[in-house]
Simulated assay, not measured.
Amino acid sequence: MLSRCNTILFVGILGSAALGTAPATASAQPLDIAAKSCGFEFTWSTPMVTSPQITALGFAQCDAPPDEHTLTLALEYDNHGRWENAAYRTDRSIPPGPPNYTSYETSAACYAGKWRMSVSILGNLRGTPFAFSDHSQPREVPSSQCPSR
């Protein structure tokens, strides 16, 4: 079962919340947030190495479908202290409700170094925009698994 990340509603400003912590919500009007939430999880806690590739995989489902849902799953690598995209996939489909889900995957050529997965979700629920972003724990890939850059 997916852990749930309540839809984050905006009142004039954008925000984000960390998955796995208490949900954050803001609303100009009372809504039944629990019935209007989507959940996302990374399949693994770090990217998976299947040399010569590195892969990010996640899945999402929504209790109630939002009007819009744009999810971008990315693989990022540490370039001298700055996270940069190596690959990403954007999907605009609406995730189904439980017990079904939508899977997301992206892969890149694997190189030694520090990698992580990231997700960004933008959408609209009953006329109210929402956003969510998160990233996995970093994974140090040794040169014994993938070549150096």
Rank of each mutant, 00 (worst) to 15 (best):
E76C: 03
D63S: 12
A109E: 14
D78H: 08
P66H: 09
A109K: 14
Y104L: 05
S107Y: 10
Y77Q: 13
P52R: 13
A64H: 06
P66I: 04
E105K: 13
T70R: 14
Q53E: 14
P52A: 09
N85L: 11
E84K: 15
A87K: 05
T90E: 12
Y77V: 02
P96N: 07
A87D: 05
T50A: 13
H69S: 04
P95Q: 05
A87P: 04
R89N: 11
D91C: 05
A108C: 09
D78T: 09
G81I: 07
G97Q: 10
Y77S: 13
L75G: 05
G58Q: 03
E68A: 15
L75H: 03
S107T: 15
G81C: 09
T55A: 12
Y88P: 00
C110H: 08
E105G: 10
T55V: 12
L57T: 14
E84C: 10
R89A: 13
N100I: 00
A87R: 06
G58N: 05
Y101R: 11
P52F: 07
P66N: 10
A74P: 00
H69K: 04
D63T: 12
P98R: 08
P96W: 03
M48G: 01
W83E: 09
D67H: 08
L57P: 00
D78G: 07
F59W: 11
Q53R: 12
C62Y: 00
P52Q: 10
T106I: 11
D91Y: 02
E76F: 01
A108N: 06
P98D: 10
Y104E: 03
V49C: 06
H80C: 07
P99C: 07
D67Q: 15
E68S: 11
A108S: 15
N100M: 08
P65R: 09
A87T: 06
A60M: 06
T72R: 10
I54M: 04
C62W: 00
E68N: 10
N85Q: 15
R92N: 11
L75C: 08
A87H: 04
I94F: 02
E76P: 05
T55R: 13
S93N: 10
G97V: 01
T72S: 08
H80K: 13
E105I: 09
M48T: 12
S51I: 01
N79C: 02
R89L: 11
D91A: 08
H69L: 05
A109T: 15
W83A: 13
D63Q: 11
W83I: 14
S103I: 04
D63H: 08
N85M: 11
S51D: 12
A86Y: 03
R82D: 15
P65W: 01
P65L: 03
Y77M: 12
A74M: 09
A64G: 04
